[in-house]
Computed example of a mutant assay.
Amino acid sequence: MAVVPVELGGRSYQVRISANLLAEAAQHCIPLLRKNSVSIVTDANVAENWRETVEASFDRAAIATRWLILDPGESTKDWSGLEKVTDWLLAGQVERGDHVIALGGGVIGDLVGFAAAVLKRGCNFIQLPTSLLAQVDSSVGGKTAINTRTGKNLIGAFHQPSLVLADLSALGTLPDRQMRAGYAEILKYGVLGDRAFFDWLAANGTAVLARESDALERAVATSVEAKARIVAEDERETADRRALLNLGHTFGHALEAETGFSDRLLHGEAVALGMVLAARYSARIGLMPDAEAAQVARSVETAGLPGEIAALALDCDGQRLADHMLHDKKMDAGTLPFILLRGIGTAFVARDVDLADVAAFLDEQLRAH
C-alpha cells in the first residue's frame, strides 16, 4: 500500500492507495469514528457495485451504516442536491465531531464535502473515491463545491477530508470512458511540472489504462504525491503554486459550459482538450515549441481522449467560448489568469492574456481539421 501524507499542520491526513481498501474500509475508518454508526452518501451506480462490500466491512466491525443514494451524474451537484444531503444528515442527527463518508466519484466527493463544510458550520468527512479522476485529483486537497446555472464549482468551500482511501480495485468496474477521463488528470501532472513522469506515461500509459496493477499504483501515487506537495505549499490557492493545477481547466470549463455540463463532454475529457489548447496557444504566442505542443496533443489522443474542438461539433464561435470564461471562479480584479506552458513540465500563471486573442485562437481551432 502506498501512503501519501497531505501535510497541513493540525489538519494533515493520509491518502492510502491500494487494492481492496473498500473491503477493509471499516478498519481504516474506525479510529476516526466516535459512534457505532456512520452515514454514507453515494450514487446509484456506485451503490450497485460497492455498497455490499462497504456495508459488509462495517457489519463485521459492528458499526451500523445509514445510506443516502443519489442519482448519478453532474446534475446532482447543485443546490437541490446540497439541500437533499444536508437535510438527510440533519435528520440523522449528524454532529460536528462526526465523520460522513463520501463513496463515489468527483460529483459525490464535491457535494458531500461541501455539505460537510457547511453542516453545523463544519463537520468531518472521509473520502472513498471510486473513479480514477477522483482518486488522483478531486478527493485530495479540500476543494468542495456545487454547480450553478452561471457556471461550474462557483459555490463551495475549502474543507479537507480526514482520510482518503483510494481503492484501485474499484477501478475494475469503472467504464473505459471514465477511466480515460481520469487518466487526463494523471497526464496533467506530467505536463505541468514533471517531464520525467510525462515520458514515463508515454511508455506506460497503455498499461495504466489497462489497469495493470503496478503501473496503475505508480501512476496514482505519483499524481497524488504531486498534488499533495502543491496543496501543502498553497492550500487555498492564494499564491500561484496551486493555480498550476488548473492547467487545461479554463479552456475545459468553457467547453463544459457550452456542452451543458453533460455527458456529451466529461470533465476529464474537457481537461484533456483544455491542455491541448493551452499548449497550442502557448506555442502560438511563442512560449513553447510547436513540436512540444504537438507532443501534448499526441499524448492526449493516444489515450483515446479528445484532442480537437472540431470533433465536438459545437454550434458557437470563439467569442462565445471566451465569454464563458468570464464566469470562471479564478477571475481576479477583472482579469483571468491562464495556465500556460514554456515547455512540457514547465507551467506558469499568465495574467496578461488578451481574451480577444484567445477568442480568435478558438475560432481557428473550431475551423481546423
Rank of each mutant, 00 (worst) to 15 (best):
M1H: 13
S12W: 08
V15E: 00
V15H: 03
R16M: 09
I17E: 06
N20M: 08
L22M: 11
A23H: 05
E24H: 15
C29D: 10
P31H: 09
L33P: 13
K35H: 14
S37E: 15
N45R: 15
E48P: 00
R51P: 02
F58I: 13
D59H: 08
R60C: 14
A62S: 15
T65V: 09
T65P: 03
I69P: 03
L70G: 11
T76Q: 15
D78M: 10
L82R: 05
E83N: 13
T86P: 00
Q93G: 00
G97R: 15
H99P: 04
V100W: 04
A102T: 10
L103Y: 06
G105N: 04
I108A: 05
L111H: 11
V112K: 03
V112F: 07
F114N: 05
F114A: 04
A117G: 09
K120A: 15
R121V: 04
Q127S: 08
S131D: 09
L132T: 01
L132P: 07
L133P: 15
L133I: 07
A134F: 01
Q135R: 00
S139Y: 02
V140G: 00
G141K: 12
G142K: 02
T144H: 06
N147K: 06
N147G: 03
T148G: 06
R149L: 14
R149C: 05
G151Y: 05
K152W: 00
G156F: 03
A157K: 12
Q160F: 03
P161M: 01
L163I: 06
L163F: 12
L165T: 13
L171F: 04
G172R: 05
D176F: 03
R177C: 02
R177F: 02
M179T: 04
A184T: 02
A184N: 07
A184C: 06
E185W: 11
I186V: 15
L187K: 09
K188H: 11
G193L: 09
G193M: 10
F197G: 08
F197R: 03
F198P: 04
D199H: 14
W200K: 12
G205L: 01
G205E: 01
A207L: 09
A207S: 13
L209M: 05
R211L: 14
E212T: 00
D214V: 15
R218S: 03
V220S: 11
V220E: 11
S223V: 05
V224H: 07
V224D: 00
A228W: 04
R229D: 15
A232E: 03
E233I: 13
E235T: 09
R241M: 02
T250E: 10
F251M: 01
G252M: 07
G252D: 09
L255Q: 06
E256H: 01
A257F: 06
E258M: 14
E258I: 09
G260I: 10
G268M: 02
A270M: 00
A270F: 01
G274N: 07
V276G: 12
L277F: 02
A278H: 07
A279F: 14
Y281R: 14
S282T: 11
A283N: 12
G286D: 10
P289Y: 05
D290I: 13
A291E: 14
A294Y: 12
A297Y: 01
R298W: 09
R298G: 08
T302C: 01
T302W: 05
I309D: 08
L312W: 10
L314H: 08
D315T: 12
C316M: 10
G318A: 08
H324P: 02
M325W: 05
A350L: 10
D352V: 04
A356H: 10
L362K: 07
L366P: 05
L366S: 07
A368P: 03
